[in-house]
Design a binder for these strands. Sequence first.
DNA 1: TCTATTTGACCGAG
DNA 2: CTCGGTCAAATAGA
Length: 262
Amino acid sequence: MALGSPAAVVQELMAMGQQSAAHLGELLRAVSPTALGEQHQELTAEILRCCGRVIAALSGGSTATGKKRKAVELGGAASSSLPATPSKRRGRGAEAAREIKSDTTEDGYIWRKYGQKDINGCKHRRLYYRCAFRDQGCGATRRVQLLSQEDMPAFAIAYYGDHTCRDGGAASQEQAMPPTVVDHGSSNAAPAAAWGGTGTDRNMGSATPALLAVGVGQRSFDGDAPSETSQGWSPAFSSEAELGMSELLDGFRDWEYVFNSV
DNA sequence: TCTATTTGACCGAG
DNA sequence: CTCGGTCAAATAGA
Protein backbone atom coordinates (compact mmCIF):
# COMPACT_ATOMS: atom_id res chain seq x y z
CA MET A 1 0.00 0.00 0.00
CA ALA A 2 1.37 3.25 -1.08
CA LEU A 3 2.62 5.49 1.59
CA GLY A 4 0.91 8.78 1.70
CA SER A 5 -2.36 7.31 0.68
CA PRO A 6 -5.27 8.04 2.94
CA ALA A 7 -5.27 4.48 4.07
CA ALA A 8 -1.63 4.67 5.02
CA VAL A 9 -2.23 7.82 6.96
CA VAL A 10 -5.09 6.25 8.80
CA GLN A 11 -3.01 3.23 9.51
CA GLU A 12 -0.27 5.31 10.95
CA LEU A 13 -2.65 7.30 13.05
CA MET A 14 -4.30 4.19 14.32
CA ALA A 15 -0.94 2.84 15.35
CA MET A 16 -0.39 6.01 17.29
CA GLY A 17 -3.81 5.65 18.74
CA GLN A 18 -2.98 2.19 19.90
CA GLN A 19 0.10 3.36 21.67
CA SER A 20 -1.70 6.22 23.26
CA ALA A 21 -4.56 4.06 24.36
CA ALA A 22 -2.15 1.65 25.94
CA HIS A 23 -0.51 4.50 27.72
CA LEU A 24 -3.84 5.84 28.81
CA GLY A 25 -4.75 2.46 30.15
CA GLU A 26 -1.67 2.43 32.31
CA LEU A 27 -2.34 5.88 33.59
CA LEU A 28 -5.90 5.05 34.47
CA ARG A 29 -4.78 1.93 36.15
CA ALA A 30 -2.42 3.88 38.31
CA VAL A 31 -5.02 6.46 39.16
CA SER A 32 -7.91 4.20 39.94
CA PRO A 33 -7.04 0.61 40.72
CA THR A 34 -10.64 0.00 41.64
CA ALA A 35 -13.64 -1.48 40.00
CA LEU A 36 -13.99 1.76 38.16
CA GLY A 37 -10.48 1.34 36.93
CA GLU A 38 -11.49 -1.98 35.58
CA GLN A 39 -14.12 -0.33 33.46
CA HIS A 40 -11.57 2.12 32.23
CA GLN A 41 -9.37 -0.68 31.20
CA GLU A 42 -12.18 -2.33 29.40
CA LEU A 43 -12.62 0.80 27.43
CA THR A 44 -8.99 1.21 26.62
CA ALA A 45 -8.82 -2.41 25.64
CA GLU A 46 -11.72 -1.82 23.34
CA ILE A 47 -9.99 1.16 21.82
CA LEU A 48 -6.94 -0.97 21.21
CA ARG A 49 -9.06 -3.60 19.61
CA CYS A 50 -10.73 -1.11 17.36
CA CYS A 51 -7.45 0.32 16.28
CA GLY A 52 -6.23 -3.13 15.54
CA ARG A 53 -9.22 -3.88 13.45
CA VAL A 54 -8.89 -0.73 11.44
CA ILE A 55 -5.24 -1.37 10.81
CA ALA A 56 -5.94 -4.89 9.82
CA ALA A 57 -8.70 -3.82 7.52
CA LEU A 58 -6.52 -1.24 5.87
CA SER A 59 -3.67 -3.57 5.39
CA GLY A 60 -6.08 -5.60 3.44
CA GLY A 61 -5.42 -8.72 5.32
CA SER A 62 -6.73 -10.73 8.13
CA THR A 63 -7.85 -9.16 11.30
CA ALA A 64 -5.23 -8.40 13.82
CA THR A 65 -7.03 -9.00 17.00
CA GLY A 66 -7.34 -12.65 16.54
CA LYS A 67 -11.01 -12.14 15.95
CA LYS A 68 -11.79 -14.36 13.14
CA ARG A 69 -13.98 -12.99 10.53
CA LYS A 70 -16.15 -15.18 8.52
CA ALA A 71 -15.80 -15.24 4.82
CA VAL A 72 -18.21 -12.55 4.02
CA GLU A 73 -20.27 -13.24 1.07
CA LEU A 74 -20.99 -9.82 0.01
CA GLY A 75 -23.86 -7.91 -1.34
CA GLY A 76 -26.95 -9.17 0.34
CA ALA A 77 -28.06 -9.94 -3.13
CA ALA A 78 -28.15 -13.16 -5.02
CA SER A 79 -26.07 -16.02 -3.82
CA SER A 80 -27.01 -15.69 -0.23
CA SER A 81 -26.59 -19.15 0.99
CA LEU A 82 -26.63 -17.87 4.48
CA PRO A 83 -26.38 -20.15 7.39
CA ALA A 84 -29.27 -22.36 6.68
CA THR A 85 -30.38 -22.22 10.24
CA PRO A 86 -29.79 -18.83 11.62
CA SER A 87 -32.58 -19.44 13.99
CA LYS A 88 -31.80 -21.35 17.09
CA ARG A 89 -28.23 -21.08 17.87
CA ARG A 90 -28.68 -21.87 21.46
CA GLY A 91 -25.12 -22.73 22.01
CA ARG A 92 -24.26 -20.54 24.90
CA GLY A 93 -21.29 -18.83 23.52
CA ALA A 94 -21.48 -20.70 20.31
CA GLU A 95 -19.93 -17.82 18.50
CA ALA A 96 -17.57 -16.22 20.87
CA ALA A 97 -18.96 -12.92 21.90
CA ARG A 98 -16.87 -9.93 22.50
CA GLU A 99 -18.23 -8.28 25.53
CA ILE A 100 -17.70 -4.73 26.41
CA LYS A 101 -18.88 -2.35 29.04
CA SER A 102 -20.22 0.98 28.16
CA ASP A 103 -22.36 3.70 29.56
CA THR A 104 -24.45 3.75 26.47
CA THR A 105 -25.90 1.19 24.19
CA GLU A 106 -25.30 3.39 21.20
CA ASP A 107 -22.62 1.88 19.07
CA GLY A 108 -23.11 3.10 15.59
CA TYR A 109 -25.04 0.15 14.41
CA ILE A 110 -28.71 -0.08 13.93
CA TRP A 111 -30.30 -2.66 16.14
CA ARG A 112 -33.72 -3.99 16.45
CA LYS A 113 -34.90 -5.32 19.73
CA TYR A 114 -36.48 -8.71 19.60
CA GLY A 115 -36.78 -9.69 23.18
CA GLN A 116 -35.90 -9.19 26.77
CA LYS A 117 -35.55 -11.45 29.69
CA ASP A 118 -35.09 -11.38 33.38
CA ILE A 119 -31.94 -13.23 34.14
CA ASN A 120 -31.24 -15.16 37.25
CA GLY A 121 -29.04 -13.38 39.66
CA CYS A 122 -29.13 -10.22 37.63
CA LYS A 123 -30.77 -7.24 39.08
CA HIS A 124 -31.83 -5.94 35.73
CA ARG A 125 -33.26 -7.56 32.71
CA ARG A 126 -31.33 -8.43 29.64
CA LEU A 127 -32.23 -7.09 26.25
CA TYR A 128 -31.78 -8.85 22.96
CA TYR A 129 -31.08 -7.05 19.75
CA ARG A 130 -30.32 -8.10 16.25
CA CYS A 131 -29.09 -6.08 13.37
CA ALA A 132 -31.84 -4.15 11.70
CA PHE A 133 -30.62 -5.50 8.40
CA ARG A 134 -31.04 -9.06 9.30
CA ASP A 135 -33.35 -9.60 6.39
CA GLN A 136 -30.49 -8.57 4.17
CA GLY A 137 -28.40 -11.29 5.54
CA CYS A 138 -26.74 -9.65 8.48
CA GLY A 139 -26.70 -12.05 11.34
CA ALA A 140 -25.17 -9.83 13.98
CA THR A 141 -26.83 -9.85 17.34
CA ARG A 142 -26.08 -8.37 20.65
CA ARG A 143 -27.11 -8.82 24.23
CA VAL A 144 -27.37 -5.84 26.45
CA GLN A 145 -27.25 -6.30 30.15
CA LEU A 146 -27.96 -3.31 32.27
CA LEU A 147 -25.53 -3.29 35.14
CA SER A 148 -26.63 -0.22 36.94
CA GLN A 149 -28.82 2.68 36.31
CA GLU A 150 -28.78 4.67 39.46
CA ASP A 151 -26.22 7.38 39.20
CA MET A 152 -24.57 6.33 36.03
CA PRO A 153 -25.99 3.87 33.57
CA ALA A 154 -23.71 1.02 32.71
CA PHE A 155 -24.22 -1.73 30.21
CA ALA A 156 -22.48 -4.93 29.44
CA ILE A 157 -22.92 -5.49 25.76
CA ALA A 158 -22.06 -8.78 24.17
CA TYR A 159 -21.76 -8.90 20.43
CA TYR A 160 -22.36 -12.03 18.44
CA GLY A 161 -21.77 -12.56 14.82
CA ASP A 162 -20.52 -10.21 12.19
CA HIS A 163 -22.14 -7.29 10.53
CA THR A 164 -22.27 -8.50 7.00
CA CYS A 165 -24.56 -5.66 6.20
CA ARG A 166 -21.73 -3.23 6.43
CA ASP A 167 -18.85 -5.46 5.89
CA GLY A 168 -19.94 -6.55 2.52
CA GLY A 169 -16.98 -5.42 0.53
CA ALA A 170 -13.79 -3.51 0.48
CA ALA A 171 -15.66 -0.37 -0.36
CA SER A 172 -17.58 -0.45 2.83
CA GLN A 173 -14.62 -0.89 5.07
CA GLU A 174 -14.51 2.79 5.60
CA GLN A 175 -18.00 2.67 6.87
CA ALA A 176 -17.12 0.22 9.51
CA MET A 177 -17.39 1.64 12.94
CA PRO A 178 -15.60 0.68 15.98
CA PRO A 179 -18.11 -1.40 17.78
CA THR A 180 -18.25 0.96 20.62
CA VAL A 181 -19.00 4.59 20.73
CA VAL A 182 -19.08 5.88 24.19
CA ASP A 183 -21.34 8.82 24.25
CA HIS A 184 -20.78 10.92 27.24
CA GLY A 185 -22.69 13.77 25.85
CA SER A 186 -26.08 12.35 26.39
CA SER A 187 -27.68 12.42 29.72
CA ASN A 188 -30.92 10.69 30.04
CA ALA A 189 -32.10 10.57 33.55
CA ALA A 190 -34.39 7.61 33.32
CA PRO A 191 -33.00 4.81 31.27
CA ALA A 192 -35.51 2.28 32.34
CA ALA A 193 -38.39 4.49 31.42
CA ALA A 194 -36.79 5.32 28.14
CA TRP A 195 -36.79 1.69 27.18
CA GLY A 196 -40.51 1.74 27.02
CA GLY A 197 -40.57 4.28 24.28
CA THR A 198 -40.91 3.41 20.69
CA GLY A 199 -38.05 5.04 18.99
CA THR A 200 -39.63 4.92 15.66
CA ASP A 201 -38.44 7.46 13.25
CA ARG A 202 -38.25 6.96 9.61
CA ASN A 203 -37.22 10.49 8.94
CA MET A 204 -33.84 9.59 7.73
CA GLY A 205 -35.14 8.67 4.39
CA SER A 206 -32.37 8.88 1.89
CA ALA A 207 -29.53 9.55 4.23
CA THR A 208 -27.07 6.82 4.87
CA PRO A 209 -27.82 5.46 8.27
CA ALA A 210 -24.29 4.34 8.71
CA LEU A 211 -22.83 7.78 8.59
CA LEU A 212 -25.62 9.31 10.51
CA ALA A 213 -25.29 6.79 13.20
CA VAL A 214 -21.60 7.39 13.28
CA GLY A 215 -22.19 11.01 14.03
CA VAL A 216 -21.22 11.61 17.56
CA GLY A 217 -24.00 10.21 19.63
CA GLN A 218 -26.63 12.31 18.09
CA ARG A 219 -29.34 10.33 19.70
CA SER A 220 -29.72 10.65 23.37
CA PHE A 221 -29.15 7.24 24.75
CA ASP A 222 -32.22 5.31 25.33
CA GLY A 223 -30.63 2.12 24.48
CA ASP A 224 -32.79 1.47 21.55
CA ALA A 225 -31.95 1.43 17.97
CA PRO A 226 -33.00 4.32 15.86
CA SER A 227 -34.70 1.72 13.83
CA GLU A 228 -35.13 3.31 10.51
CA THR A 229 -35.46 -0.01 8.89
CA SER A 230 -36.81 1.48 5.80
CA GLN A 231 -36.31 -0.45 2.67
CA GLY A 232 -34.53 2.45 1.11
CA TRP A 233 -31.07 1.64 2.20
CA SER A 234 -28.82 -0.91 0.72
CA PRO A 235 -25.64 -1.78 2.49
CA ALA A 236 -23.70 -1.64 -0.70
CA PHE A 237 -21.72 1.53 -0.76
CA SER A 238 -19.40 2.43 -3.48
CA SER A 239 -18.71 5.97 -4.43
CA GLU A 240 -19.73 7.22 -1.08
CA ALA A 241 -16.91 5.32 0.42
CA GLU A 242 -14.41 7.96 -0.47
CA LEU A 243 -16.49 10.60 1.11
CA GLY A 244 -16.66 8.52 4.18
CA MET A 245 -12.92 8.21 4.14
CA SER A 246 -12.25 11.90 4.09
CA GLU A 247 -14.60 12.42 6.97
CA LEU A 248 -12.88 9.61 8.72
CA LEU A 249 -9.59 11.33 8.25
CA ASP A 250 -10.95 14.49 9.70
CA GLY A 251 -12.03 12.57 12.69
CA PHE A 252 -8.66 10.99 13.05
CA ARG A 253 -7.05 14.34 13.13
CA ASP A 254 -8.99 15.07 16.23
CA TRP A 255 -7.95 11.76 17.61
CA GLU A 256 -4.39 12.60 16.94
CA TYR A 257 -4.81 15.78 18.85
CA VAL A 258 -6.36 14.00 21.74
CA PHE A 259 -3.79 11.29 21.81
CA ASN A 260 -0.92 13.69 21.66
CA SER A 261 -2.22 15.67 24.55
CA VAL A 262 -2.47 12.70 26.81
C1' DT B 1 -51.30 2.24 7.30
C1' DC B 2 -46.87 0.89 8.29
C1' DT B 3 -43.23 -0.31 11.21
C1' DA B 4 -40.91 -1.09 15.61
C1' DT B 5 -41.56 -2.64 20.27
C1' DT B 6 -43.58 -5.40 23.82
C1' DT B 7 -44.50 -9.56 25.94
C1' DG B 8 -45.74 -14.23 26.76
C1' DA B 9 -44.89 -18.70 24.94
C1' DC B 10 -41.98 -21.96 23.02
C1' DC B 11 -37.69 -24.49 22.29
C1' DG B 12 -33.41 -26.58 23.22
C1' DA B 13 -29.09 -26.94 25.89
C1' DG B 14 -27.07 -27.98 30.22
C1' DC C 1 -36.11 -29.49 35.28
C1' DT C 2 -34.29 -24.94 34.85
C1' DC C 3 -32.75 -21.23 32.35
C1' DG C 4 -31.48 -18.48 28.53
C1' DG C 5 -32.51 -17.25 23.74
C1' DT C 6 -35.86 -16.65 20.08
C1' DC C 7 -40.36 -16.36 17.93
C1' DA C 8 -44.51 -14.23 16.79
C1' DA C 9 -48.98 -12.10 17.86
C1' DA C 10 -50.57 -8.01 19.84
C1' DT C 11 -49.90 -3.29 20.63
C1' DA C 12 -48.46 1.42 20.16
C1' DG C 13 -46.63 5.40 17.82
C1' DA C 14 -45.81 8.34 13.81
